[in-house]
Design a protein around this nucleic acid. Structure first.
Lengths: 248, 248
DNA sequence: CCTCGTTTCGTACGTTGTACGGTAGACGCG
DNA sequence: CGCGTCTACCGTACAACGTACGAAACGAGG
């Protein structure tokens, strides 16, 4: 980092920024919206490490420092970006409350969160700094609570369940993104990679005496994949919830 | 980033680095171990943003560029750090295979992963780049598979279950870390924070018509917390697994 | 003592986020 | 139309970063 390390100084100002778009158009023609849009496009295409104030400014068509008239700093810009993509989770897709019963709804949520996470991989890389509570996040939260409303859960249980589902899905997406990145920049197929690294790992496994992982690892390396793992974990969880609902 | 953006160039070299500590002691007295230890200490104490090659070098007591004689670059150093902390998940604690039945084992895993994640918060911030497969990760994986061995699961199911449990726990830890950080650098108690921000959010909720989140959000704000959410999600999952095991 | 390979590390570069303060445009008023 | 004032713009400058480069210092073998 340069002279930075400037965490969002004023939380209140950030809330204002999130909830009141301030469509002000200055002499330069820039708006918060155009900045955020450009930044998201850039980052979707080239990853978080390409997100640079200079690059954003270039894409918007203004000198760097002009951005600072509309956005307090990079941290706040990222926060705006996060809220924006969070709000678009179900854009162009069915909404969780209208795909069937609660089970179908939760499965739909998991699937969307997974795919949306993969599509905006950078959002998973952002270091967790402060809870973002913008309109996008809130709207999506509302949509996702819908399938859980009125099926016999306490309020807290509704949130806990949704959080658990989202946890599984985002972890799976993170894992998927990791795999894709590794594949991309190593120029190797999974097979080639394992042929290179496998022997060394295998030897280490013998030396260290790791019997269970050695057999499990083999199965996973050949048939494991994040999406499958997600649906397995999800099934477990939904079965548990179903049992509880029936017992009431 | 400076002229960097240098993802670990040679995966094979990294594997070698991970599995063969190379306890070489040069003229400067530095070893890989001393570098990694210093780096972890520094980062535990001051966060990932304080992890600087210059700071590490200072703490070790050598000029910066000396580090590069032992470690290829910052990315690889981080990978070494990650594997090291992963290997210490159960240091000084019971091992998952010896705390009772499979259910107790998985609950223990979740608790340890959660606490360990909070203790090394920076490890959760590291952008997911490439799967780390060092000795620490492998040893811990072995320990965590133990409670699942021989209870009637397929090999793939064992991995899927463990992954699901870990997903819940790391997400909870991430959330906890976020909360702690927000509390720390805003100098406000939760109550003060809500008194400042609450009204604005509440108004937005009315304007945007978000009935469910508004009641759920209230319950969560007053009684929600990551650890509780974790144990709720975990209970759901373990209930599901229990049902499946009984049905076989 | 000299030679040669290895390890150390001083210097320098390009890139980053953004503080600072001069400047130019818009606008109300005469 | 002229002029002061206020605001938005943005050129310049800086500190901090990761690390390439190559000279210097070292240990060992002749």
């Amino acid at each position: 980092m340069p002279r930075t390390a400037r965490p969002p100084r004023d939380p209140l100002a950030l809330v204002g920024l999130l909830w009141e778009p301030s469509t002000r158009v200055g002499r330069s023609g820039v708006t918060i919206g155009s900045i955020v849009t450009a930044a998201i496009g850039l980052t979707d295409a080239e990853g978080l490490s390409a997100l640079t104030m200079r690059r954003v400014a270039d894409d918007v068509g203004v000198p760097v420092m002009t951005l600072y008239g509309h956005v307090p700093g990079k941290a706040e810009l990222i926060e705006l970006m996060l809220d924006h993509v969070a709000g678009a989770t179900y854009a162009g897709h069915d909404v969780p409350g209208e795909v069937g019963d609660w089970r179908a709804g939760l499965e739909h949520i998991a699937q969307r969160v997974f795919e949306h996470g993969c599509a905006h991989a950078w959002a998973l890389e952002v270091p967790p700094a402060r809870p973002v509570l913008g309109p996008g996040v809130c709207r999506t939260y509302e949509l996702e609570l819908a399938p859980l409303d009125g099926i016999g859960l306490e309020l807290l249980e509704m949130d806990e369940t949704l959080t658990a589902v989202r946890s599984l899905a985002t972890s799976a997406a993170r894992w998927q993104v990791t795999l894709d990145a590794a594949r991309r920049d190593s120029q190797l197929t999974d097979l080639e990679w394992w042929e290179l690294v496998g022997p060394r790992i295998a030897q280490a496994m013998r030396d260290e005496h790791l019997p269970i992982s050695s057999k499990v690892g083999q199965a996973v390396a050949s048939a494991g994949d994040p999406q499958r793992t997600l649906s397995a974990g999800l099934t477990l969880m939904l079965d548990g919830l179903e049992g509880r609902l029936q017992a009431r």
